[in-house]
């Protein structure tokens, strides 16, 4: 009883070790289910291969330099377009939050654009901009900009009125209220928008590379799929998954650092 109770308490605790144990456990369970599936239900290796073969393929791609080539193509496109998207999103959110009429006028249109799966327009952008960097840039920026824009506006409007009153009572002018109250209050919202945008950017880049490129993770996945190399295909999916998880962890910790009072 006490042993199990103690184990349970440890596993649901906040310590670094217990969270590592939890992650390791969930990864192990997924790998186990995957292994069992390939051994019993889906034995056709065109459809699904066991985890070990995927890691072997990953090793092969690392050794022959393909991961590097594709990684540079995808990485450069993301590193250029994602910051641009964040910048435009924050700027747009600032503009929308600063003027009610503007927000009411542009809001519904932006909401519609946010809801449309922009990736569906990918073939059109490729027809306009050709294969390669330009179309990747536009597609990734477009999918990533909206979450940032929306959360920035929401964050700027969410400001606690009591804090604004306190600032005003100390004779703060509009600019001082903005820099010392409104902006810091909105920052964690912005970061949570950036986190969502990162996940969307990864989808955007893969789709852009499916349709219009000669290199990149999306290109490699498509190429592997067309040659029925399921192991290589899944190896690149794992790499993309890792990028998603790392980005998510980074932005989550930034959020926690910017707004510690929300997490206790």
């Amino acid at each position: 009883m006490t042993f199990w109770a103690r184990t349970y308490d440890f596993l649901q605790g906040d310590s670094r070790t217990s969270s590592l144990v939890r992650v390791a456990f969930s990864v192990a369970v997924v790998l186990l289910i995957w292994e069992i599936l390939t051994a019993t239900v889906v034995t056709n290796s065109l459809l699904l291969v066991p985890p070990l073969e995927v890691f072997a393929a990953l090793g092969r791609e690392l050794a022959n330099g393909n991961v590097w080539t594709n990684g540079v193509a995808t990485g450069v496109a993301l590193l250029v377009s994602f910051p641009v998207a964040v910048f435009i999103g924050v700027a747009g959110g600032l503009i929308l939050a600063s003027n009610r009429l503007f927000s009411l006028t542009a809001g519904p249109m932006l909401m519609a654009l946010y809801s449309v799966p922009v990736v569906a327009l990918a073939p059109l952008f490729i027809a306009w901009l050709g294969l390669g960097f330009a179309s990747k840039f536009v597609i990734v920026s477009l999918v990533a900009v909206f979450p940032v824009l929306v959360t920035t506006e929401v964050g700027l409007r969410a400001t606690d009125k009591a804090l604004v009153d306190a600032a005003r009572s100390f004779n703060a002018n509009g600019w001082q209220i903005f820099t010392t109250v409104t902006l810091p209050y909105a920052l964690p919202y912005v970061v949570s928008g950036v986190r969502v945008a990162w996940a969307r950017a990864l989808v955007g880049i893969v789709v852009a590379e499916f349709f219009g490129s000669f290199a990149g993770f999306g290109f490699a996945i498509l190429a592997a799929g067309q040659t029925f190399d399921t192991a290589t295909l899944l190896a690149y999916v794992i790499l993309l998954g890792a990028m998603g998880v790392i980005g998510s962890l980074v932005f989550e910790s930034a959020e926690r650092r910017l707004a510690p009072w929300r997490h206790e």
């Binding site: 009591a162 009153d165 005003r168 009572s169 004779n171 109250v181 707004a259 009072w261």
Partner: peptide, 19 residues
């Protein structure tokens, strides 16, 4: 006509800056 240095308020709610 407006807030000034000669007055200061202690507010009822939590009006401290949490950051």
């Amino acid at each position: 006509t407006r807030p000034g240095k000669d007055r200061a308020v202690v507010f009822q709610q939590d009006s401290l800056l949490p950051w």
